[in-house]
C-alpha cells in the first residue's frame, strides 16, 4: 500500500554565516506516500521551514547541501536539478502554501491574475483562459461571488479569504505535492478550522500528497495520516497519528504532547518544555535533547541514539528504548495516553 512519491534521504542543510556554519538540518530522512498527509511538528527553529524550502529549491543563498543528501521525486534527485528544471517543478509538481496570507500576495496585482500566473507559466494557457480557470479555482476554494472579486486587490480581502486565494494559487497547476508551512498560524481559530477543512476536502478530490508543517500538535490530529517530530534539525520520532498521539516514546514528543491543550487536560496542567533548543552552530555531542530531558541517561551526552523500531510504521531515536536502559515512568498525562493506546489495540484485536 505504501507508494512513496517523495523520498528524502540523509538530508543535511548547512548555512554559512559570519559566526560559522549553522547545521540547520542534520540527517533527515522520510518518505511521503501518494495521497497521504505527513505532518512535521517541532518547536521554533527545529528546521521545519528549512526542510520545506529545500523541497522547493528556495533556500537562502548561504545554504550548502552536501552531496550525499538526496530528494527523490519521480525518479529524479531534485538536488541535481538546474534552475530551469526547478522552475518546472515549482508551482507545477510541488506547490507551497505560505504562513502569512497578509503578506504573501502581491499588493499591486489583481488576485485573479495572481492565481492565473502559474497557469500561464506551466500550462501555457492564454491570459484569457487562465483567468477563466482562475475563476473556477476561486469558486473551488470557496470564495463567494467570485466573479465580482476576480479583479480585487489583496488589501480588499480578509486574512481567511486571502489564504483561500493562496491555496488557489498553489492548486492552480494541479501539483502532486502540496507543502503547507504553518498555513493557519496567522488566522483566528474559526477561520483556521475552515481552511483546514478546505485543504482536506481538496486533497480528497485530487489525491495529492500534503506535507503539513506546524508547531501545534493540536491541529495535527484531524489533518495528518502520519507525523514526524523534529528537534534541532533531526527527526526524533515518527509514526502514524495514533502511534504518536497514544504511544509516544521519545521524551521530546512527551513534552510536546504535554504542552498541548486537550479537552480533558486539567486547567494549569499544561507544561511548556523547559530550557531552549541547542545552538546549531555547534550541536552538542550525543542526543541534542539531553540537556532538557529529565529522563536523560549517562550515554545521552556522549552518543547519539539510533532509531529504535516500535512497529513497522513507528520509530523513535531515544536511548530509553535500548534494552539495557532502565525502565522509566513517563508523566501522568502520557501514561493516560498509553492506557488509551491499550484500549485501541484491544478494540482492533
Amino acid at each position: 500500500m505504501s507508494n512513496p512519491i517523495l523520498r528524502v534521504e540523509n538530508l543535511h542543510v548547512n548555512f554559512n554565516t559570519y559566526a560559522g556554519t549553522v547545521q540547520a538540518i542534520r540527517d533527515v530522512s522520510f518518505d511521503l506516500n501518494q495521497g497521504e498527509t505527513l505532518a512535521i511538528v517541532g518547536e521554533s527553529g527545529s528546521g521545519k521551514s528549512v526542510t520545506t524550502k529545500t523541497l522547493m529549491g528556495l533556500n537562502a543563498k548561504n545554504a550548502v547541501i552536501p552531496e550525499n543528501s538526496r530528494l527523490l521525486f519521480k525518479d529524479k534527485n531534485l538536488l541535481e536539478l538546474s534552475e530551469e528544471e526547478w522552475q518546472h517543478v515549482r508551482g507545477n509538481e510541488i506547490a507551497m502554501i505560505f504562513q502569512d496570507p497578509m503578506t504573501s500576495l502581491d499588493p499591486t496585482m489583481k488576485i485573479g491574475q495572481q492565481i492565473a500566473e502559474p497557469l500561464i507559466k506551466h500550462q501555457e494557457l492564454s491570459e484569457k483562459d487562465a483567468l477563466a480557470r482562475a475563476l473556477e479555482l476561486m469558486k473551488g476554494v470557496g470564495i463567494p461571488n467570485a466573479e465580482e472579486h476576480i479583479n480585487d486587490y489583496p488589501h480588499q480581502w480578509s486574512g481567511g479569504m486571502r489564504q483561500r486565494a493562496v491555496i488557489a494559487i498553489a492548486l492552480a497547476a494541479d501539483p502532486e505535492i502540496l507543502i503547507a508551512d504553518e498555513p493557519t498560524t496567522a488566522l483566528d481559530v474559526t477561520i483556521q478550522a475552515q481552511i483546514l477543512n478546505l485543504m482536506k476536502q481538496l486533497q480528497k478530490q485530487s489525491n495529492s500528497s500534503i506535507i503539513f508543517i506546524t508547531h501545534d500538535l493540536g491541529v495535527v490530529a484531524g489533518m495528518a495520516d502520519r507525523v514526524a517530530v523534529m528537534y534541532a534539525g533531526k527527526i526524533v520520532e515518527y509514526g502514524t497519528v495514533d502511534e504518536i498521539f497514544f504511544n509516544p516514546q521519545h521524551p521530546y514528543t512527551w513534552g510536546l504532547l504535554n504542552s498541548m491543550p486537550t479537552t480533558d487536560t486539567a486547567e494549569g496542567s499544561l507544561q511548556a518544555i523547559p530550557g531552549t533548543p541547542p545552538d546549531l552552530l555547534e550541536p552538542p555531542l550525543g542526543d541534542a535533547f539531553a540537556p532538557r530531558n529529565s529522563y536523560a541517561l549517562a550515554i545521552d551526552s556522549k552518543e547519539e541514539p539510533p532509531f529504535f523500531k516500535i512497529s513497522d510504521t513507528h520509530y523513535a531515536a531515544t536511548w530509553l528504548l535500548d534494552e539495557r536502559a532502565p525502565k522509566v515512568t513517563p508523566p501522568a498525562q502520557i501514561l493516560k495516553r498509553w492506557a488509551r493506546w491499550e484500549e485501541l489495540q484491544g478494540q482492533e484485536a
Binding site: 522552475q87 505560505f98 500566473e117
Partner: peptide, 17 residues
C-alpha cells in the same frame, strides 16, 4: 525578500519574471 516574492518564486516564475 518579501513573502509575495517568495510566493512568486514558488509559482515557478524565473528570477527575471
Amino acid at each position: 525578500s518579501s513573502d509575495y516574492v517568495q510566493l512568486a518564486r514558488a509559482k515557478g516564475l524565473s528570477e527575471k519574471e
